[in-house]
């Protein structure tokens, strides 16, 4: 393992933060080895919002399904029969969970363990998220990220607040944040416009349209629900100033990092492969 480079910081995006909590031990170890090379690990408010929206909402869904069908086996049947393939994360959490806590476990044991793990993830997941880094940059001050997860009925009903900036009740600083980052937005849109159509993903096209809209009138930003529509773009802006961006998603990050002058490090989803720099 390389020794930490003094004064170096790394930014962790949503894919990395989720992987650090619920991927395999091998994957977690690989990420830990990478992070040991830096002495400051940071993430941001929109990453927290995505962590809630992706991982913790899935956990709530599984917990509700468990309450409805009543057993671990029943949930497994539900996820394999009902969920479409694109819902793989929900499926995998459920299928993988708890098979190895105790070989003597019955279905009732597994059901109870699954309930406890998922509830704990819901009530403690944001604390875990924050504990895993040295700092959560306030960035655009995402109000959706800061809305707490409220347990309405234990194991059955959880409220996440909205994930639409236009409906957020708390203070959302996205308009001011975008104004402050106008020069960076121009750099990004310049890079994205120069891409060939095959390199321009749907997310990058949405980012391009969004930037054009806010450069014309920043006031429209909240109405466009940026933290759910163009999360990659906001996260990129929040990470600007951190020299290294660590992600499992190369598609958009390679162009955003190029526009912001950051070093990109990609963790492949296959744990047999080394990080790509």
């Amino acid at each position: 393992m390389r020794t930490p480079r003094c004064g170096t910081a790394v930014f962790l995006d949503t894919t990395i933060q989720i992987a650090r909590l619920v991927h395999s031990r091998q994957m977690k170890d690989l990420i830990a080895q990478r992070l040991a090379q830096y002495d400051v690990r940071v993430t941001s408010s929109v990453v927290k919002q995505e962590f809630k929206r992706r991982l913790l909402r899935d956990a709530a869904y599984l917990l509700q399904t468990l309450a409805r069908v009543g057993s671990y086996q029943g949930v497994m049947r539900h996820v394999s029969d009902v969920l479409p393939p694109k819902q793989n994360r929900k499926r995998n959490i459920c299928i993988q969970v708890l098979e190895t806590v105790d070989e003597s476990d019955t279905d009732e044991d597994r059901t109870d363990r699954l309930k406890l793990y998922l509830r704990s993830l819901l009530t403690d997941g944001i604390n875990q998220f924050e504990d895993m880094v040295d700092s959560v940059l306030p960035g655009c001050g995402c109000a959706c990220a800061n809305a707490p997860i409220r347990e309405v009925r234990k194991y059955e009903r959880y409220e996440f607040g909205t994930d639409k900036c236009s409906r957020a009740k708390g203070e959302c600083g996205v308009i001011e944040f975008l104004r402050q980052n106008e020069a960076r937005l121009r750099n990004i849109v310049g890079v994205v416009r120069g891409l060939s159509p095959k390199d321009k993903s749907i997310e990058l096209r949405q980012a391009e349209e969004f930037i054009e809209s806010v450069l014309a009138d920043a006031q429209c930003a909240r109405r466009l629900n940026p933290c759910s529509l163009v999360g990659d773009l906001l996260i990129a802006l929040e990470s600007a100033g951190i020299p290294v961006f660590y992600t499992m998603n190369r598609a958009e990050s390679q162009y955003l990092c190029r526009a912001l002058g950051q070093e990109l490090v990609v963790r492949p989803r296959n744990p047999e492969k080394a990080d790509e720099e």
Partner: peptide, 12 residues
């Protein structure tokens, strides 16, 4: 030590 290890999601 990782309290959530049994909740591991399989990598796609």
């Amino acid at each position: 030590l990782d309290p959530y290890e049994p909740l591991a999601v399989a990598e796609p």
